[in-house]
Design a protein around this nucleic acid. Structure first.
Lengths: 219, 219
DNA sequence: ATAAATTAATCAATCGTTTGATTAATTTTG
DNA sequence: CAAAATTAATCAAACGATTGATTAATTTAT
């Protein structure tokens, strides 16, 4: 197989993943049949198993593709020792908000699957992937506390829930959040011009207010 | 059929809905088979169709049942003029955390449903009910700002996303949040003894830090 | 006795996956 | 270089299992 063939094959696999991601997001994992996915992608049903081993393999391949692209960015922020904890936090929020809002359909699909309380191979795999991002954020906070930049009197763990939860609430409940915020949060222009900068500013200010190392103002 | 029978029948239907709610939360709508639900509830499979007509009928019955009790609870707090904005906020958080954690299975179901981009009668209904709770919270914040108790320089609308989003993140992603927090957040004892008080304390402190009307400490 | 409740058995449909065959491309061999 | 052997890609068909739903028979309650 020459290089041109290799490229075609990758393009075809990528095309299947594009279609599958959309179908999964619309119908959920169990709701999306392999027949529908292969039909939408105009490929033979057996190709899904041939390329990805199984339906679950297709699902996980979607994750690997999306996660891999941004994983290194977040890690580099966490490992950059040339900037202080506050700057790391800002950078993390900027990158994270951009990525999540840009790939909001994917994140809806992700959260729908991980919201299943029953443990499966699939939820285990997703958990592992998500936890990598969580750990980066946790380390930024922990190091900031250790260095004295952040207050010691914070709940690091629930703070994770706030950052990821605030973001999730906006993208996962578009009908609600659009009503609250006052414009359609699914609209691309609104996202770029209004939502993203506003969400960044807000999260930074919220974190700053909570993390600031003030001299214990009682009550 | 006398009254005793009628009660038995209602109890049985209620029991089925209890079990179904849990299974739907665990596996999602498509992931939960009627055989599993009826098996867990120790009733014949045909009883689901006999009582509720179809699988979807079971699903809708769960919502109708919970939604009925969903209504009036929080409204009283918002309308209580005998306490100040800070106290209202505390009360709201207390009752809200209790209610959501106690009914975590239903809330997982609810959020999974509302995360669908396609509008349906069900999502419209859920949206309306959720917005009623949101409005109570927003009014507390708005009145606190107007009275000067809270800072004017806050993003009221995104603050809503933080409160509801933080809570959602804990209950909707149990695998993740259990890993982050360090114990099983689905365990009833953990919920009552650890999670609920901790979440209340955290949310209050977070809100206080963000809302406090300080004299603009630059940077 | 009659209506309601419950059951086991069964239904067609659909699920994800596997199979064996075929085509196309690449490598190996003579 | 050309024939043979090997590999990769693709396909239609079928697999066994499971799905939600229904039937008809039986039990229970009034």
């Amino acid at each position: 197989m020459n290089q041109a063939m290799e490229k075609d094959k990758i393009d075809k696999k990528d095309h299947i993943l594009d279609v599958a991601e959309k179908v999964f997001a619309e119908l959920g994992y169990e709701g999306a049949s392999t027949r529908l996915i292969s039909g939408e992608a105009n490929v033979n049903m057996a190709m899904l198993n041939y390329y990805f081993g199984s339906k679950e393999g297709v699902f996980l391949a979607i994750f690997e593709r999306r996660i891999a692209s941004f994983q290194s960015v977040l890690l580099s922020i966490g490992n950059d020792d040339s900037i202080n904890a506050w700057e790391k936090l800002d950078k993390y929020i900027d990158s994270y908000v951009d990525r999540v809002v840009n790939n909001n359909c994917f994140h809806v699909m992700l959260n729908r699957e991980i919201s299943k309380s029953k443990k499966t191979d699939l939820t285990d795999q997703i958990t592992k992937i998500i936890m990598r991002n969580v750990t980066v954020f946790q380390n930024i906070i922990a190091n900031g506390i250790k260095s004295g930049e952040f207050s010691k009197d914070v709940d690091q763990q629930l703070l994770v829930a706030t950052i990821f939860g605030t973001k999730n609430y906006i993208v996962n409940t578009p009908h609600i959040s659009s009503l609250i915020i006052g414009y359609d949060v699914m609209d691309k222009d609104n996202q770029d011009e209004k939502l993203k900068p506003r969400l960044k500013t807000y999260l930074k200010k919220l974190l700053k207010a909570y993390l600031v190392n003030e001299n214990d103002n009682n009550k």
